[in-house]
Write a protein that binds this DNA or RNA. Structure first.
Lengths: 195, 195
DNA sequence: GTCTATACGATGATAGAC
DNA sequence: GTCTATCATCGTATAGAC
């Protein structure tokens, strides 16, 4: 990838994160890069293509990272901890891209949308397999696998929406809080209210 | 509120939910209402005003509902259960409006943005007070109140993004799953991983 | 690879008749 | 209250020179 192409991507990530995809114009991006807007089209065929590239890289990296993190044959609760930690760390370290990937699906064309959703589904199915395995061997309580996978992933992803890199808590602290909360829910989540 | 004004709001909710605020044009709304686009401006001064009205009503109703649900002086874990259940039910029963209120803050003007965020902050602070109370009297484990309030609210809100009214699970089932999962996390969320 | 210039469409909003 | 007509603006994208 050429230097300017990388600059355009990087500036676009900043702007899409700051103002949103629709509110960001090609002129804005060009201004940020210090070139004319027509020059953008030498590197990317359209604004939508730019959005797709950003999302595509992000989601591919996310799926690869999760797979790598799960190669160890640990007990199921330990594997779930690793998965949660990996997810949270990725979403906080690459906050802007993940924010975009989770909030700008609307901007994609039909085919690109399908492509990103396919990656997301692949990712979710890995989490669902973990939950199912833990439930089936008794490590986790009986739960609805799909609902809980949405809940867990959404909870962990939400950090990308409010996390402040210079703030009070470090990434590892936040990851640990989420990890413990989720494991507690998976191990005890059917407690009934006192009558 | 006149009949046409209500129609415009209702059609706008449908379209903002379906296509997003930015991708929905005044022409789209007018077509949906069976009138000309100029006529919209008799009822609302701008497209942004329309978005604000929708968000404002939704958030006000949400805050009122939560306050009403907590008038009973139950034990803290019971009150938290009620709060979670109320939140989930509201978000699933009024799915479209809540989806909009959570995903289209970008479309608001400065002042309107501040107004909506103030309501959201008020709402969050009620949840934070519940968590803090439970933590201080030992019903919940020691936790970071702010982080956990974001996590819990985001988890519960996420239902508005994937819930399918005609689907497999009823609102009450989903609310019960979330409720139990969250209470388990609050009561056991500092379990450490086995070493 | 980047520039200037421009085509072309769509959009939010207004004016004024009925 | 709703209409027709229209404005001004801005958006993405392309053509062709350098």
């Amino acid at each position: 990838m050429t230097r300017m192409k990388e600059t355009i991507q990087s500036i676009s990530i900043d702007l899409f994160y700051q103002k949103g995809y629709f509110a960001t114009s090609i002129s804005d991006i060009a201004r940020g890069c210090g070139i004319q807007k027509a020059s953008i089209y030498y590197h990317f065929s359209s604004k939508e293509e730019l959005l797709f590239q950003i999302m595509s890289h992000t989601m591919s990296d996310l799926v690869s990272l999760l797979k790598e993190s799960l190669v160890q044959a640990d007990p199921i609760d330990q594997r779930m901890r690793v998965a949660v930690r990996t997810h949270v760390q990725f979403h906080l370290h690459r906050q802007k891209e993940n924010f975009i990937a989770n909030s700008e699906l609307r901007g994609l064309s039909e085919e690109h949308y399908r492509s990103i959703v396919a990656l997301r589904d692949e990712y979710e199915s890995i989490f669902q397999a973990l939950i199912r395995e833990g439930r089936d061997n008794g490590a986790f309580v009986a739960v609805d696998v799909r609902i809980l996978s949405y809940a867990i992933l959404n909870l962990c992803t939400s950090g990308a929406f409010w996390y402040n890199p210079g703030g009070r808590l470090a990434v590892e602290d936040i990851a640990a809080i989420y990890e413990n909360f989720i494991i507690a829910g998976l191990q005890n989540g059917t407690l009934r209210p006192p009558v």
